[in-house]
Design a protein around this nucleic acid. Sequence first.
DNA 1: TGTACATCAGTGAACGCGCGTTCACTGATGTAC
DNA 2: TGTACATCAGTGAACGCGCGTTCACTGATGTAC
Lengths: 187, 187
Amino acid sequence: MRYEKGHKEATRQKIVEVAAAEFRRNGIEGIGVADLMAKAGLTHGGFYSHFKSKEELVRAAMEEAAKKSRFRKIAEEGGSLEEIVRTYLRPETRDAPERGCAIAALVSEIGRHSLETRKGLTASVERLLGIIETRLPEGMANRRKTAIGIFSAMMGALQLARTVSDKKLSDNILEAGIEAALNLASK
Amino acid sequence: MRYEKGHKEATRQKIVEVAAAEFRRNGIEGIGVADLMAKAGLTHGGFYSHFKSKEELVRAAMEEAAKKSRFRKIAEEGGSLEEIVRTYLRPETRDAPERGCAIAALVSEIGRHSLETRKGLTASVERLLGIIETRLPEGMANRRKTAIGIFSAMMGALQLARTVSDKKLSDNILEAGIEAALNLASK
DNA sequence: TGTACATCAGTGAACGCGCGTTCACTGATGTAC
DNA sequence: TGTACATCAGTGAACGCGCGTTCACTGATGTAC
């Protein structure tokens, strides 16, 4: 074989990583297969020996983003809910969607995709809810419900902060999102 | 003139109304100018005598959605915050995005549009924040900040409920969103 | 009152373009003999 | 050890299609004379 063992797998991984970033930055419809391949250092023709469709890449990219998410990383390192919330709603996260939460970036668009793709996103949501839930006070009445409220506020605030045209309002939204999330957690 | 006075204005209005619904249902990229015109009972060629671009229609449709929003209607009728929140997060609202909040439906996509279009969305956000703010207890320390947190939670929950593939989880998200919003309001 | 012309909202063919996808091909290297 | 062939990741031209936009045209009716 003219490529070392594992070469194809490494190429596929590279494509998935590029896609995970580009989809979050530009939206799924906002970046084409040819551009994705070019950013991975390839030409577009080979794409279909790795994936049976762009949609399949979307699912792989969602998984990749979930696996590499800072959310998950902080959780694995035993970080507190406050750390998670503050990282999620930092200006740096707002300004670099390609490295931020894939759910926040793609939830609307994926709402119009196939059931299978929506299942992928749902799995990510469940995972995040679990992480939040375990960080809530043990005595709390309905931790799952609270976790959902917290994540909704975080995600909503991140999206609003990204789109609003007024810088000051955007900063205020980040702060308000942090406060709301922590508020709900300590109810 | 072969059309009665005001005919062109009425046609334009019809196009804007169709667009306001279709953009919310399918996303802006998800519905083309020709399909929009067909749904308004016209052919696509006349589009550019009403709007200078699809982008201009996007702005008009955002305004239209804001003007006709149930949110605003409830507010004008003196409805309480609880009424607003419960209407916003009803299953019927989740299942009919074409009549629901345009901000929730389009915030991500508009984040990648021109500054002018983002300004239009920002104006809608400011309006909704004002409505929420005036319904918060007078003694509350930072009403605007609280209003932002409430709206973030509402919007985030609506989007999640729309995309998640599990019906039960979706219903739970709506409930959790309501609870979180009301919780923040009474802090 | 009747006729020629002006108006202009709407029509539909056509434009260039980018998209997702297909496919015959390339060429470097491993394997068979 | 040397040569012919098989393998297969990646290439790039080509496909049909739908998009936003342009434009010459239509045809119903108002206006001028």
